[in-house]
Amino acid sequence: MADMNRISAAQRFHAYANPARFMALSARLLAPLWGLSLLVVGAGLWFALFDSPPDYQQGETVRIMYVHVPAAWLAMFGYSVMAVASAAGLVFRHPLSDLCAKSAAPIGAAFTFLALLTGSLWGKPMWGTWWEWDARMTSVLILFFLYLGYIALWATIEEPARAARAAAVLALVGAINIPIIRYSVVWWNTLHQPASVFRMDGPTIAPAMLLPLALMGIGLTLLFVALLLVRMRAEVMRRRVRNLRLAQAASAGEA
C-alpha cells in the first residue's frame, strides 16, 4: 500500500511539476486575453460592416473576406502551432507540448472549416459556383482532412503518452508533406484550368480595407490563443482525472 502511494506520487510529480506553473500562469492570462480579443474583434467588425467601402469589383461581397482571410490564416497558423508543439514534444518529452498540439487541432480544424465555408459563400456570387477546384480551395480541403486524421488518431489510441507520440509523428510527416501537396495541387490546377477565374490577390488593397482585415486577423488570433489556453487547461485537468482514477482503481484492487 505504501509502495503504491509512492509510485503514484512520483507519477503525479512528473506529470504536474510544470503543468502546475502553467495553470497558474494561464489563469492570470486568460481574462485579459478574452477581453482584448473581444475588443479587437468588435472594432474589426465595426470597420468590416459599417466603416469600409464596397470593393469596385466584388461589391459588398468583399466583406466576406474580413472573415475568410483571417480564418484561412488561422487554419495555417493552427497547423504550424501543432507541428512545432509536436516536434518539441518528441524532442523534449515535455507533457505540455503534447497537450498544446492536441488542443490546437480542433481549433485549427474549426477555422479551416470556416475558411472553406466562407470561401464557398464568396465563390457562389463571384465565380457562379459553390465549389471551384482551384488550387487554394483544394489544398485547404486537404489541410482539413489532415486535421481530421490527426484528431481521429488522438481519439483512437487510448493511452495518452502513446497517442501523443504517434500523433506527433503524424503532425510532422504532415508538415513535411504539406508543401509537396500544395505544389502538386497548384501544378494540377494550372494543367487543367485556364486561369480565367477571378483572383483575389489583386495588387493593391485599399487602406480602408486593410484596417478591418488587420483588426479581424489580430483579434481572431488572440481568440485562438485564449481558446488554446482553455483547452490546454482542460487537458491538464483531464490527465489529472485520469491519474486519480488510476490511483483509485489501483487501491480498490488492493483492498
Binding site: F145, T156, V173, S184, V185
Partner: peptide, 26 residues
Amino acid sequence: LTVGVRRGGLLASLLVLPFYVPVLIF
C-alpha cells in the same frame, strides 16, 4: 501509426490518403 489499434486499417487509410494526393496528381 495505427498498429495495435482496433479497426486500425480504416484509420490508416484516412491518415494516409492526403499524402497520396501528389502521387495521384502526377
